[in-house]
Computed example of a mutant assay.
Amino acid sequence: MPRRLASAATVLGLTAAGMTLTVGTAEAASYNSACGSGYSVIDSMDVGDGNTFLTYNSSTGYNCVVTVGDAPGTSQILGARLRLHSTSTTWKSGEMDDGVFSYYAGPVYAYAKGSCIDWGGRAASNYTRVNYGVHCG
């Protein structure tokens, strides 16, 4: 009888450990087609608790940026930014979508056929962190 109790305790311990590992593992966010039809992902970046996606519609010449959180349905700070390339560190209101969202920030659009753009986003509890890059096309 003590042997069965030890075996049961071992199984329960392993099951609990497995559940802890499964619950603690977050999957990276994937693009959710929020920009609409005709947009294809041309770049992406990990921005902490989510991913920011840069998309392009070759028939219209518009770029679009969306940041998708790693925990869909959970309110979190998310941001998406897109503008024509600038040396300014200030972003205008039409160039970004920042706030607390349950699924994603954006979409933010800019016509940029043959131009360089600044793009990026945030998805973290640290509201001051913004990752961004420059893309030319």
Rank of each mutant, 00 (worst) to 15 (best):
Met1Asp: 14
Pro2Met: 15
Arg3Phe: 08
Leu5Val: 08
Leu5Asn: 08
Leu5Pro: 01
Leu5Glu: 05
Ser7His: 07
Thr10Met: 07
Leu12Ile: 02
Leu14Gly: 03
Leu14Ile: 07
Thr15Leu: 12
Ala16Met: 13
Ala17Ile: 09
Gly18Trp: 08
Gly18Ile: 09
Gly18Tyr: 07
Leu21Gly: 12
Val23Arg: 15
Gly24His: 06
Gly24Lys: 07
Gly24Arg: 13
Thr25Gln: 13
Thr25Arg: 13
Thr25His: 14
Thr25Phe: 11
Ala26Leu: 15
Ser30Pro: 05
Tyr31Ile: 12
Tyr31Lys: 06
Asn32Val: 15
Ser33Trp: 13
Cys35Val: 07
Gly36His: 09
Gly36Glu: 03
Gly36Phe: 12
Gly36Ser: 00
Gly36Tyr: 10
Gly38Ser: 10
Gly38Ile: 00
Val41Gly: 03
Asp43Trp: 02
Met45Phe: 05
Asp46Ile: 05
Gly48Ile: 04
Asp49Tyr: 07
Asp49Met: 10
Gly50Ser: 02
Gly50Lys: 00
Asn51Trp: 14
Thr52Pro: 07
Phe53Cys: 10
Leu54Gln: 03
Thr55Asn: 10
Thr55Ser: 15
Tyr56Trp: 08
Tyr56His: 08
Tyr56Leu: 11
Asn57Tyr: 03
Asn57Glu: 01
Ser59Val: 08
Thr60Cys: 04
Gly61Cys: 00
Val65Thr: 11
Val65Tyr: 06
Val65Asp: 01
Val66Phe: 00
Thr67Met: 06
Thr67Asp: 07
Thr67Ala: 02
Val68Ala: 02
Gly69Phe: 06
Asp70Leu: 05
Pro72Val: 05
Thr74Ile: 14
Thr74Asp: 15
Ser75Asn: 14
Ser75Gln: 11
Ser75Asp: 11
Gln76Pro: 06
Leu78Ser: 01
Gly79Ser: 04
Gly79Phe: 03
Ala80Lys: 00
Leu82His: 02
Leu82Met: 02
Leu82Pro: 00
Arg83Gly: 01
His85Met: 14
Ser86Met: 01
Ser88Asn: 01
Thr89Tyr: 09
Thr90Lys: 05
Ser93Val: 08
Ser93Asp: 13
Ser93His: 09
Gly94Ala: 13
Glu95His: 06
Asp97His: 05
Asp98Thr: 15
Asp98Arg: 13
Gly99Thr: 05
Val100Trp: 07
Phe101Pro: 01
Ser102Ile: 04
Tyr103His: 01
Tyr103Glu: 04
Tyr104Ala: 10
Tyr104Lys: 02
Ala105Glu: 02
Pro107Ser: 06
Ala110Glu: 12
Tyr111Val: 10
Tyr111Met: 09
Ala112Phe: 05
Ala112Lys: 08
Lys113Asn: 13
Gly114Pro: 12
Gly114His: 12
Gly114Arg: 11
Gly114Tyr: 03
Ser115Val: 01
Ser115Phe: 11
Cys116Met: 06
Ile117Lys: 06
Asp118Arg: 05
Asp118Tyr: 00
Gly120Val: 00
Gly121Glu: 04
Arg122His: 14
Ala124Trp: 10
Asn131Cys: 14
Asn131Asp: 12
Tyr132Met: 10
Val134Gly: 00
Val134Phe: 10
His135Val: 12
His135Gln: 13
His135Ala: 14
Cys136Gln: 08
Cys136Phe: 07
